[in-house]
Design a protein around this nucleic acid. Structure first.
Length: 412
RNA sequence: CGGGGCAUAGUAUAGUGGUAGUACGAGUGGUUUGGGACCAUUUAGUCUCGGUUCGAUUCCGAGUGCCCCGACCA
C-alpha cells in the first residue's frame, strides 16, 4: 500500500502517560489507539500484525484438527450459575449488564460454559469424539488494574481451544499434541528461543497447569528455568515437593521475569458434569466427556514481540507477522520507485511504499520505527547504478540488488 | 481494592491571582532533498463542578481520567 494513503501518522514523542515500551512504540508508530485504560483499538498496521499472529495460530490449530467457530459474547446468568461461576465472589472480573426487561447478562470472561452446553447437542456417542474446537473471540474482564499497555487489558481477543475427549488417556494425547502446536506457534513468531514451557498451579484434575512464558523484564510473572531441560516452573509452585516431582534441582534454576503468552489446562469433568455433556460408550454406558482448554492472547503476543524484539530505533517485526514484508522508500526517484512497487506487488510481495514528499531523514526514521523486515531504497543513486539498496531491519549494513533481480530476491 | 504521582493546543512542555508562551504537528507560499533540513506566515489549549476573590489556568474542596507500586488475575 502507498504510505501517502495511510491515514495513521507517526508521533515523534511517546505520550507522557504511557510508560510501557510496547504501548509507547505501538502508539508512536500508529499501530494502536488508546480508547481508555485497558482498551485499545487496532489501526490498519496494527490490525495487520494482529491478523498475521492469529493466522499463524489458526494454521497450527487446524493442523492438529482444530475446528474454528465463534461463540457469543453475551452470556446467560443461569448457565453460569450451574457451574457456580456467576457469583462475583467466585469470579470477580465480570462485566454484568441487563436486558431492558431486567434479565441479567454477562459479557463473556471465558467460554467453557457456553461451549460445553452447546457441545451437548452435538456429542452423544463415543464415535463423535474427540473434538477440538477453537475460536478467536473477545473476552471482557473487569480487571482492577489494567496495565502495561496492551499486555493486560479489560477487553481482548483470545484464541481459546477446548478439547473434548473420551477418557484420560485420550485427553493426555490431545494435551501433548496441543503443547507441541504451541511450541510451533511461538517458534514461528520469533519467540521460540526465549519462551519456556512452565509448570504452574493446576486445577483440580491435574497436578499442574502449563504456561508458556516468554522471558522479558516487562513481564509480571517470575519463573525458574532449568536451561538443560528447557523447562521452567512458576514461582507459585516453587517448593521441594514440586522440584522432586519434576526431577529438577534448585541449584540449576535461574530466576527470570516473564510474560505469560499461553496456557493449557486439564479440566477433567469440571464442566461436562454440571452441564450434562456426556457420551455413550461401546457398551451403551453414559460417560462424562473429559475436557481441556488452551489459551493464547494474540494482542499480548503482539505486545510481547514489541517488548522483546524492538531496538532503540523502533519496532522490529519478524516476517511471520510484519504488517508488510518490504518497506519501499523513494528518495527523489518516484518514477523508478513506483515501477518497483508495481513489480513487487504484482509478484505477491506485500509492500508499504513511502511515496510521500518528505525528506530522506524522515523516511528513514519512520521506516525504522515501523519496523518492516526489509527496507528497499530507490534513490538517485539507484538510477545510476541500476540497483536498489536492500537492508534487513535487524542488520546495520545494507546490500544492493539490481532491479531485474529484485522480485526474485524477495520470492526466495 | 490499598498506596503514590500527574492533569495546559493533535503531541511534548513552560509560566502566571490580572490579555497563556515555546517546540513538533497541521495549513499556505518559497527554498531544499540519502538520516527527523530551512525561511515566512496561519492554526489550535488551561479536565469537570463548586468555593475563596473585584478577578482563578494558578489557591481550596469534591469529582473524573491517566500512569506507577502492591493486592488480585477461570
Amino acid at each position: 500500500m502507498k504510505q501517502s494513503q495511510l491515514f495513521t501518522r507517526v508521533k515523534r514523542e511517546a505520550p507522557k502517560d504511557e510508560v510501557s515500551k510496547n504501548a509507547q512504540l505501538l502508539l508512536r508508530a500508529g499501530f494502536i489507539h488508546k480508547e481508555m485504560a485497558g482498551a485499545y483499538s487496532f489501526l490498519p498496521l496494527g490490525l495487520r500484525v494482529l491478523n498475521n499472529i492469529m493466522q499463524v495460530i489458526r494454521e497450527e490449530m487446524n493442523a492438529v484438527g482444530g475446528q474454528e467457530l465463534s461463540l457469543a459474547s453475551l452470556q446467560e446468568k443461569e448457565l453460569w450459575e450451574k457451574t457456580d461461576r456467576w457469583d462475583d465472589a467466585k469470579v470477580d472480573v465480570w462485566f454484568k449488564t441487563a436486558l431492558k426487561n431486567g434479565t441479567e447478562l454477562g459479557l463473556a470472561v471465558t467460554h467453557e460454559e457456553p461451549i460445553t452446553r452447546m457441545m451437548a447437542q452435538h456429542v452423544s456417542s463415543y464415535r463423535d469424539l474427540p473434538v477440538l474446537a477453537y475460536q478467536f473471540q473477545t473476552k471482557f474482564r473487569n480487571e482492577t488494574r489494567a496495565k502495561s499497555g496492551i499486555m493486560r487489558t479489560r477487553e481482548f481477543i483470545m484464541k481459546d481451544l477446548y478439547s473434548f475427549t473420551r477418557n484420560k488417556e485420550e485427553h493426555e494425547t490431545v494435551y501433548a499434541t496441543l503443547r507441541e502446536a504451541y511450541k510451533k506457534i511461538f517458534a514461528r513468531l520469533g519467540l521460540g528461543a526465549i519462551t519456556y514451557q512452565t509448570f504452574a498451579s493446576g486445577g483440580m484434575f491435574s497436578k499442574y497447569s502449563e504456561e508458556f512464558q516468554t522471558v522479558s523484564n516487562a513481564g509480571e510473572d517470575v519463573i525458574y528455568i532449568d536451561e538443560a531441560s528447557g523447562k521452567a516452573l512458576n514461582v507459585e509452585v516453587l517448593n521441594d515437593e514440586v522440584l522432586a516431582d519434576l526431577g529438577l534441582k534448585r541449584e540449576n534454576l535461574i530466576e527470570r521475569a516473564s510474560i505469560e503468552v499461553g496456557n493449557t489446562f486439564s479440566l477433567g469433568t469440571k464442566f461436562s458434569e454440571p452441564l450434562g455433556l456426556s457420551y455413550k460408550n461401546e457398551k451403551g454406558e453414559s460417560c462424562p466427556v473429559i475436557m481441556g482448554s488452551y489459551g493464547i492472547g494474540p494482542a499480548r503476543l503482539m505486545g510481547t514481540i514489541a517488548e522483546v524484539l524492538s531496538d532503540g530505533s523502533g519496532l522490529v517485526w519478524p516476517e511471520s507477522v510484519a504488517p508488510f514484508r518490504v518497506h519501499l522508500l523513494s528518495l527523489g526517484a518516484d518514477e523508478k520507485a513506483g515501477e518497483t512497487y508495481t513489480a513487487l506487488t504484482a509478484a505477491g510481495i506485500e509492500v508499504l511504499y513511502d511515496d510521500r514528499d518528505t525528506t530522506a531523514g524522515e523516511k528513514f526514521a519512520e521506516s525504522d520505527l515501523l519496523g518492516m523486515p526489509w527496507r528497499v531504497v530507490v534513490g538517485k543513486r539507484s538510477l545510476e547504478s541500476g540497483k536498489a539498496e536492500v537492508k534487513k531491519r535487524t542488520e546495520k549494513e545494507a546490500g544492493e540488488v539490481s532491479f531485474e533481480e529484485l522480485v526474485s530476491f524477495f520470492q526466495k
